[in-house]
Design a protein around this nucleic acid. Structure first.
Length: 838
RNA sequence: GCGGACGUGGCGGAAUGGUAGACGCAGGGGACUUAAAAUCCCUUGAGCCUUGCUCGUGCGGGUUCGAGUCCCGCCGUCCGCACCA
């Protein structure tokens, strides 16, 4: 064996062998148990970043481990290839989005290959290719036939200077990112998917997802937002009826005004007779469409002069048009209870409206003033006539019952979840397969005419949707009547692309989206891994899409992802200098890092080491995986990714850390070099340590607690190094080689070959363990006096309680700590501790 | 603004309510070497009256024989908020 392991040679060598032997191609026809391991596929931005390396390393370790434990593993990779960055590149650099994207894919694929991931490249897909999005169009038509697709008006961010629709991230401080113009809300007719039809199912389904993080399930639950409340109608002073919805009917006596959305019919009617109301409604159109923006904006209202009669008290409440009321939720009108809703509180404070307490922690505090904010918590009802003294829950039920009895309202379930708007006024996406005909209306493209392919000859020099401007593309004959008609020029949200790619990975026939029988063999995904930022939208849409396909009879899978894991971000410290009162940042490549300081290579002067934050271009704290790969090899970078930080938390990148990993690669290599197949003699303690480590590492990998597995590998390595040569020692070396095979596959193959083993370690079996060796026969007992540790004693496992107590009392240290005090109580936990309470 | 999480040495972290700090990094000391690299050994929470004792898991309370872990209230940081992916 060579003295040093050379990753530059070994990485390439084994990557070629894996490729040639098609080691990681998943078979659809096998008797083995299946394991579908999937990481969220990347957007092809051009270069792999550390976040990708982490994500795919986590999945790869699991996939390789699953293979070693006898599973047929499906571990595919593809590209989420539609989206805005390609169009931005087209505008900025004059390149075609397709060419730019495909070049990025080629680069990133080469980078992934250099990391030695055990991926089935034969199933690679890119969502921007017609052989993917054509099937998506077919599925969209299936959902249309099932009644799950419709069109309605919906607001977008409109840039009045560029005359274009902006994404939320393109709106900065209420202005268009390029033009700087104030953005307005504009209504367009757009395509929607009826995700709300599945609200109950999606909520209920969360209960079956035992291996999803509770936080993700909770976030989805809150997002779906099922609420039981009361819908009832106020009678207005003009005789009209105004339906409102409230989740807090218990607070009805605290209502001090009524508010409607700016696009509510009542607001429209009022505006007809008032130019001031009109102006206010126009004012409400200013600004973007995001929830965060709407809710942090100053609460504004317009007094319509109308009043609404309170159903119990008969009081006349003023009716406002308010910018914080949403037309999309409930009825677009609310009864406002300032004491117990913060938005209402802010509004009432601004317009001098009464704030009445109707919930208190104690009936005696009925007139306690508010401490500058609303109180949304539980309590007892006060100042509320017949509701006084009731709990919040009882009062809710009582008011709903009275409303239903009186025939002026009814209990109702309302969802926060809104239907999914999938229209995008952009070029680089899946064309929505519909045709607009003056005579026949909106007509689906017949399936035999799919795919509707994007035109290649498009111009990005003018803002707006190139499909709309294209001279010929949209002009077609109506499939129904044959007369001239136009294509739909909106494309699909890229979340649609990522809502079924995991099905296409499992099965990809040419003539249809997938084969349901093959899909059933692989789905659900056994382990899905990706960022927490996808906790709601992507995961909810994928769950919805899967259920929608089941309802249309296309598949028989409900939940696509059996187990979900959300990994943390890769972070790095920042380097900066203050210049002219501003921080100038330097990249890690420009800086020489010492133990506790850092200097700029260019001039040798010091730079300030800043906080450890998410790698980002603006702070220049980005490290390119390729450079690391070239310096340290794939195994070192993979080892770094799984060491130290638990995968769900942030991982701080450091050059010292990667150097430590590279050193450990060499240390293992030296250890493997000491393997002696002919060594004799038994080392019971090492045998025990070996099997305990094998069992624990297996548990850790299955729990994705890789940092713990890594710590155990270090411990076993040290134990082997300290042991004398023996058959046990060689056996332990062989075991640790198998343990690290999923983590450092190149080193493992090289060593496997060097010690004379047959075949590839990638195809070897996980080492078996002897259950008898897993339990220790001795344990160390803690001896406490009044809960404080005073001594320890090592005894045989299972030593009796009274014996432990006697040992504790016999301890000199214990006697000194007791200092003659009388023992009042003794707590003995077998194999754990003795606590003497004096 | 609303929803969700996280907080333990210089750093990343470990710890079924039961010996806080496993393991790694960084630091200190030493061996080997002409020297360096590489490697190996020892050491490293803070404080003190140092056979040992006291304090210590963001802050303030509480439950318990015993709390990093459970409960209540704060503070700070991060993620999401429906057209970024």
């Amino acid at each position: 064996m060579n003295e040093r392991f050379d990753p530059a040679v070994a990485d390439q060598r084994w990557q070629r062998v894996w490729d040639e032997r098609q080691c990681f191609a998943a078979s659809d026809t096998t008797d083995k148990p299946r394991a579908y391991v999937l990481e969220m596929f990347p957007y092809p931005s051009g270069r792999i970043h550390m976040g990708h390396v982490r994500n795919y390393t986590l999945g790869d370790v699991l996939a390789r481990y699953k293979r070693m434990t006898g599973h047929e593993v499906l571990h595919p990779m593809g590209w989420d290839a539609f989206g805005m960055p390609a169009e931005n590149a087209a505008m900025e650099k004059g390149v075609h989005p397709g060419g730019w994207t495909r070049e990025n894919i080629a680069n990133m694929k080469a980078q992934l290959k250099r990391l030695g991931f055990a991926l089935d490249w034969s199933r690679e897909l890119a969502t921007c290719e017609p052989d993917y999005y054509g099937h998506e169009q077919a599925l969209f038509l299936d959902l249309y036939e099932a009644g799950l697709v419709y069109r309605k008006e919906s607001a977008v961010n409109w840039d009045p200077v560029d005359m274009t629709v902006l994404a939320n991230e393109q709106v900065i401080d209420g202005r268009g990112w390029r033009s700087g113009a104030l953005v307005e809300k504009r209504k367009l007719s757009q395509w929607f998917l009826k995700i709300t039809d599945f609200a109950e199912e999606l909520l209920e389904g969360l209960g079956d997802l035992k291996d999803w993080p509770d936080k993700v399930k909770l976030m989805q639950e809150n997002w779906i937002g099922k609420s039981q409340g009361l819908e009832f109608a106020f009678t207005l002073s003009n005789g009209e009826s105004l339906p409102v919805y409230t989740t807090r009917p218990d607070t009805i006596f605290g209502a001090s005004f009524v508010a409607v959305a700016a696009d509510h019919p009542v607001a429209q009617t009022v505006a007809e007779g008032s130019s001031e109301a009109q102006a206010f409604i126009v004012e409400c159109k200013r600004g973007g469409t995001t929830a965060a923006e709407l809710e942090t904006a100053e609460k504004l209202g317009f007094d319509t002069g109308l009043t609404a009669r309170h159903p119990f008290s008969g009081a006349d409440l003023p009716v406002y048009i308010a910018n914080f009321v949403l037309m999309d939720y409930g009825t677009g009108a609310i009864m406002a209870v300032p004491g117990h809703d913060q938005r209402d509180f802010d509004f009432a404070t601004k317009y001098g409206l009464p704030i009445v307490r109707v919930v208190a922690t104690d009936p005696a505090e009925a007139d306690k003033p508010f401490a500058g904010e609303a109180e949304a918590g539980d309590g007892v009802i006060v100042n509320s006539d017949f509701l006084n003294g009731k709990s919040v829950a009882d009062a809710k039920a009582d008011v709903i019952a009275r409303a239903e009895q009186g025939g002026w309202g009814e209990g109702k379930t309302v969802w926060r979840l809104r239907d999914w708007g999938v229209s995008r006024q952009r070029y680089w996406g899946t064309p929505i397969p519909f045709i607009h005909c003056d005579a026949c209306g909106v007509v689906p493209v017949p399936k035999d005419q799919l795919p509707v392919v994007l035109p290649e000859d498009v111009d990005f020099q003018t803002p707006g949707n190139p499909l709309l401007r294209h001279p010929t593309w949209k002009h077609v004959d109506c499939p129904k009547c044959g007369k001239p008609a136009t294509r739909e020029t909106d494309t699909l949200d890229t979340f649609v692309d990522s809502s079924w790619y995991f099905l296409r990975f499992a099965s990809q026939p040419a003539d249809r989206p997938f084969d349901p029988g093959v899909v059933a063999q692989w789905l659900p995904v056994e382990q899905y891994i990706g960022g927490i930022e996808h906790a709601i939208l992507h995961l909810l849409y994928a769950r919805f899409w899967t259920r929608a396909l089941r309802r249309t009879g296309l598949i028989n899978v409900g939940e696509p992802f059996a187990s979900l894991f959300t990994q943390g971000m890769v972070t790095h410290e920042t380097y900066s200098r203050e210049q002219n009162g501003r921080d100038v940042f330097y990249s890690p490549a420009e800086v020489e890092r010492g133990g506790e300081s850092a200097t700029l290579i260019e001039d040798g002067g010091p730079v300030e080491i800043g906080r450890v934050i998410k790698m980002s271009k603006s702070k220049k704290n980005v490290v390119d995986p390729d450079a690391i790969l070239a310096d340290y090899g794939a195994d070192a970078i993979r080892w770094f990714m799984i060491s130290d930080s638990p995968p769900e938390r942030d991982l701080p990148w450091s050059i010292a850390g990667i150097e430590g990993c590279a050193r450990f690669v060499q240390r293992l290599w030296r250890l493997f070099g000491q393997y002696d197949a002919g060594a004799e003699g038994e080392d019971k303690a090492l045998d025990r340590k070996r099997d305990q480590t094998v069992a624990a590492v297996a548990d850790d990998i299955e729990a994705l607690a890789f940092n713990k597995a890594v710590a155990r590998v270090y411990e076993l390595t040290t134990a082997i190094e300290k042991a004398q040569p023996s058959a046990s020692r060689s056996s332990a070396i062989r075991a640790i080689l198998l343990l690290v095979a999923p983590m450092m596959p190149h080193l493992a193959e090289e060593a496997w070959d060097a010690i004379g083993e047959e075949g590839l370690i990638a195809e070897a079996a996980w080492p078996p363990v002897d259950p008898a060796l897993l339990v220790d026969d001795e344990v160390t007992i803690a001896i406490q006096v009044k809960g404080k540790l005073r001594d320890t004693v090592t005894v045989a496992k299972g030593t009796a309680k009274d014996e432990l107590e006697a040992l504790a009392l016999a301890s000199e240290k214990v006697q000194r700590a007791l200092d003659g005090a009388e023992i009042r109580k003794v707590i003995v936990v077998p194999d754990r501790l003795v606590n003497l309470v004096a």
